[in-house]
Design a protein around this nucleic acid. Structure first.
Length: 343
DNA sequence: TAGGCCATCTGGTCCT
DNA sequence: AGGACCAGATGGCCTA
């Protein structure tokens, strides 16, 4: 099946093929390959019935007249000194300009392909990745921004996040289909999420967390640019609590008929619900050379600094909490969740 | 069929 | 001069 990314992609070596549909519009005639130009000349009717041809002829005429006139008078109509006559571009210059344009087009395509490749690699590290159901460019960027924000909050709080709050942060500003997609990727019941008219994500049901902790899922900062939403009610960081019962509540029934999009592609698990934020991706060489993800957030203002690659070297009290508590706490469930990602 | 998303072309601007 | 970057225009594909 052809993906969106594959469509309209033509080989660089055949720029005229890509230009062809545009000839009828505003593509410059001089850009036609010589053979096509010749062919077009031969096909021109002698009668001046084609409006485009008439326009061309008028342009030619007016150009010539302007060339002649511009030597006689300046813009004020005063007699102008005769200088070197402006030379109309010769065939060589036209060909050269044509070539430069084609080269520029190829570079532009290449540049955009690079941009798309970077976007694709970004898709693979945000919390929802499917080869068959790709996030759009804009949604990928939004989700990435939310993800960075949520992880930064988690790091600054130094505690395990509230699951719902985390997911709600992820989904902020995303379209309803993308929200469903993310919820589906994370195996949450997408029906529990609503998007209001402002695009803010709300949780429609009563969270079991709220029942257990009398703590609302809105107790966290909102990402920049998302003020005033349903989640913007406080500055408290993610709350530290045990996931075990909540996990059961949310994942014992993974809601296969939740209305979420169908996922038959690869899902990447940048986050695990039992609190371990591991990043899985197809090409770890991209990241293995760099420092651990957590280190990248340490330079943020207000964040406590860690030595490079030193997430596990700092004192236990200051350590990223997930490895301290959660691995032993719910190792089995982590495996279950991971298993679903690796389908 | 309208709207969203996308790839490509194109000309302008800025920088080296 | 030439390359990188950008935004507008255009047209194709897909989906609700």
């Amino acid at each position: 099946m052809l993906t969106r990314g594959d469509m309209l992609t033509l080989p660089f070596e055949e720029p005229h093929m890509m230009c062809e549909p545009r000839f009828g519009a505003n593509y410059p005639r001089e850009s036609l390959p010589d053979s096509l130009q010749q062919q077009e000349r031969q096909q021109r009717p002698t009668a001046r019935s084609d409006p485009e041809m008439m326009r061309e002829a008028e342009d030619d005429l007016s150009d010539r007249e302007e060339d002649e006139r511009e030597d006689d008078q300046d813009e004020n109509g005063l007699q102008k000194k005769r200088g070197p006559r402006k030379k109309r571009p010769g065939k060589e210059q036209v060909d050269r300009a044509k070539l430069r344009r084609q080269e520029a087009n190829a570079r532009e395509r290449s540049r955009m392909h690079g941009l798309n490749a970077a976007l694709e690699s970004l898709r693979k590290v945000v919390p929802c990745y499917s080869k068959t159901q790709k996030l759009s460019k804009i949604e990928t960027l939004r989700l990435a921004k939310n993800y960075i924000w949520a992880l930064s909050e988690t790091l600054s709080a130094g505690k395990r996040p509230d699951l719902l709050a985390f997911v709600q942060t992820l989904c902020k500003g995303l379209s309803q289909p993308t929200t469903n997609l993310v919820a589906g990727c994370l195996q949450l019941n997408a029906r529990n999420f609503l998007t209001d008219h402002n695009g803010e994500v709300m949780f429609s049901g009563r969270s079991p967390y709220e029942a257990m902790y009398s703590y609302t899922s809105s107790d966290m900062n909102s990402p920049p640019g998302h003020s005033g939403g349903a989640l913007d009610t406080g500055s408290k960081p993610f709350r530290h609590y045990s996931y075990s019962s909540a996990y059961e509540t949310y994942f014992e029934n993974p809601s296969p008929d939740s209305g979420s999009p169908h996922f038959d592609g690869q899902l990447s698990p940048p986050m695990n619900f039992n609190g371990i934020f591991s990043l899985k991706h197809d090409d770890p060489q991209d990241y293995g050379k760099s420092s651990h993800y957590g280190v990248r957030y340490c330079g943020a203002p207000g964040r406590s600094a860690l030595a490079p690659n030193s997430m596990y070297r700092v004192s236990p009290e200051a350590r990223f909490p997930y490895d301290l508590h959660v691995r032993s706490q719910s190792f089995q469930t982590q495996g279950e969740v991971n298993g679903s990602y690796h389908n």
